[in-house]
Design a protein around this nucleic acid. Sequence first.
DNA 1: TTCACTACTGACAGTTTTTGGCAGGGTCAC
DNA 2: GTGACCCTGCCAAAAACTGTCAGTAGTGAA
Lengths: 235, 235
Amino acid sequence: MSRAQRLLDLIQLLRGYRRPVSGAMLAETLGISLRTLYRDIETLKAQGAHIDGEPGLGYVLRPGFMLPPLMFSEEEIEAIVLGSRWVADRADPALSAAARSALTRIAAVLPADLKANLDTSALLIGPGQAIAAGDAELPVIRAAIRSESKLRISYLDGKGRSSRRTVWPFALGFFDRVRIIVAWCELREGFRHFRTDRIGKVQVLDKRYPRRRQVLLKEWRASEGISEHRNFGSD
Amino acid sequence: MSRAQRLLDLIQLLRGYRRPVSGAMLAETLGISLRTLYRDIETLKAQGAHIDGEPGLGYVLRPGFMLPPLMFSEEEIEAIVLGSRWVADRADPALSAAARSALTRIAAVLPADLKANLDTSALLIGPGQAIAAGDAELPVIRAAIRSESKLRISYLDGKGRSSRRTVWPFALGFFDRVRIIVAWCELREGFRHFRTDRIGKVQVLDKRYPRRRQVLLKEWRASEGISEHRNFGSD
DNA sequence: TTCACTACTGACAGTTTTTGGCAGGGTCAC
DNA sequence: GTGACCCTGCCAAAAACTGTCAGTAGTGAA
């Protein structure tokens, strides 16, 4: 196995653990000596991987993905740049910052002429209508979805009725003017959609919901009759 | 210098030429033997680079970018995926296909668990309003922008007046419901915006316009009073 | 404090990979 | 044919990588 491949394997291996893993364990799994493992870790760090090593504990990889060398066609890069710009312009501040940071990261490794080209890329995102409020809590909600945590929300529905519910959020829909949380509602015992601008308080409960996010998503799609995996009906 | 770095350099070097370059020339520039160069080319091809080698001519790289190993945070990947999905849903068929292909390319190199995660990503794009027509010509227009070619178009303006013009297209704006070509108009001797759904026939002229796309873009921004580099006013 | 466990670094010899040179084969244009 | 180039196999030299060993230093628990 080539060294480059082994470095990727090491990253993926680290990704699998939440707790710190000792170098000795990693070395054995990869079939290499401890000394070589240290050298590999050093190389990965130099390549930008966020690996923290603490004496007495082990190694942890900060959440993220490592992509190997990748070739994109001109159109593919244009698509990615345009899409990231849309996110940078239209998503909530946290995700918008992530999109800009991703673009910066890509620009950093391109030669100067390409970078200039990217900065003045011909594909632009128009301003569009203002997004309804409710953005402040989005990072919290995304985190809850990732960790499959229950949420306690107060909600004002379309007819002006207020309620407090515990929900299992598993998806976030981006429309032109609103964002919608897709969740299982404990109160109604069914799938419900919540416009973020109609949500009052959000409280992340310290409890995981009892089902997998992927499964909920699949069932919800079936219940909505959604064939394409990208779209969904409005609330 | 590491081999991996040299492979990237080779790609960038190839990118710089439009005409075929001989292997001997590349080898000398990189400071390696011809034999090694052939091996490097072989490796790059195996990694997915589109390098065409023709006996008697030399090597040419089909337009595209090679990204080195890159580390993205969880939010950055989410931003890229969401953005690419927006493009896949909302852009014209050609760009949409490119976005899907880019996502597939990324998914292909991720471990199985991550790929599943990406397939069922929590961030979705809502369907939104239908895009006004005029998409068929977009790939042609994008190509004209890239190559800085003049376009001959027939246009129906907002007041129903028809005209035929020669324009220098340098940007494409994506709004929620329409797309807009930003161009210098030879007829009006000024910057003009053209909704793609109001364009009749499009003909790419075999003539480059006499100024750089980047410069036109900069001047247009100044004339519109646009500070941010992502937004622009409606037509 | 000591102990066990861990991250790290340097040196050096053995192993593996990479490299360059050589010989030869193929294609294309003239 | 000739010249210019791409491409492959082979092998020895060069370079990079690897494992072993020795040692430093930080952490948390007993």
